[in-house]
């Protein structure tokens, strides 16, 4: 079943997620286990609507991605909100958006497409593919933002030169 925390696809019948070690809910469809409450089952009444699913906690740090010196294990106890954990594999969506709106639409859009691939591959459990897509998203944002900055600097320099030339120096 899909882990409600990180999206990792686990074997049927697994009780803990093989990717993030969170306890998996017993019955599909999994109610998001909220901030630490075990799934309300067998109480004989309909459980209250579950709170919004917590942001996915990071995958284990063993995939070569920097965890900024903060081990994720041992800190994800129940009842502890997981959103203070850094993202394990970034999709660089912000940079791609910035590139699209400020610098270059086609290159930035490629960055957004790779950002979306990061998320879909993470959800499918394809960690290596997600890391690859993450690197591509970063690369295309660099091409768009860095290239846009270079072109802008060159243009402003040309204008400045022509302004100086026109002023008679």
């Amino acid at each position: 079943m899909n882990c409600p925390y990180c999206g990792f696809v686990n074997a049927e019948g697994a009780t803990t997620c093989a990717s993030c070690d969170q306890q998996l809910p017993a019955a599909p469809p999994p109610p998001p286990a909220g901030y630490g409450q075990p799934p309300a089952e067998g109480y004989g009444y309909a459980p209250a609507p579950p709170p919004p699913a917590p942001p996915a906690p990071p995958a284990p740090p063993a995939y070569g991605q920097s965890t900024y010196g903060q081990p994720a294990y041992g800190q994800q106890g129940y009842g502890q909100p997981s959103y203070h954990q850094p993202a394990p594999i970034k999709n660089h969506l912000v940079m791609a958006i910035l590139a699209t709106l400020c610098c270059c639409v086609p290159l930035g859009a490629v960055g957004i497409i790779f950002a979306s691939q990061v998320n879909s591959k993470l959800a499918a459990g394809d960690i290596a593919g997600a890391e690859k897509a993450s690197k591509s998203a970063l690369l295309w944002s660099w091409l768009a933002i860095g290239g846009g900055a270079l072109i802008g600097i060159g243009y402003a320099a040309l204008v400045a030169v022509s302004v100086v030339a026109d002023s008679g120096f």
Binding site: H84, A87, L93, I112, N119, L122
Partner: peptide, 10 residues
């Protein structure tokens, strides 16, 4: 805090 964690945001 983690942002952009939603699967379909991109």
């Amino acid at each position: 805090p983690r942002i952009g964690g939603w699967r379909h945001s991109p």
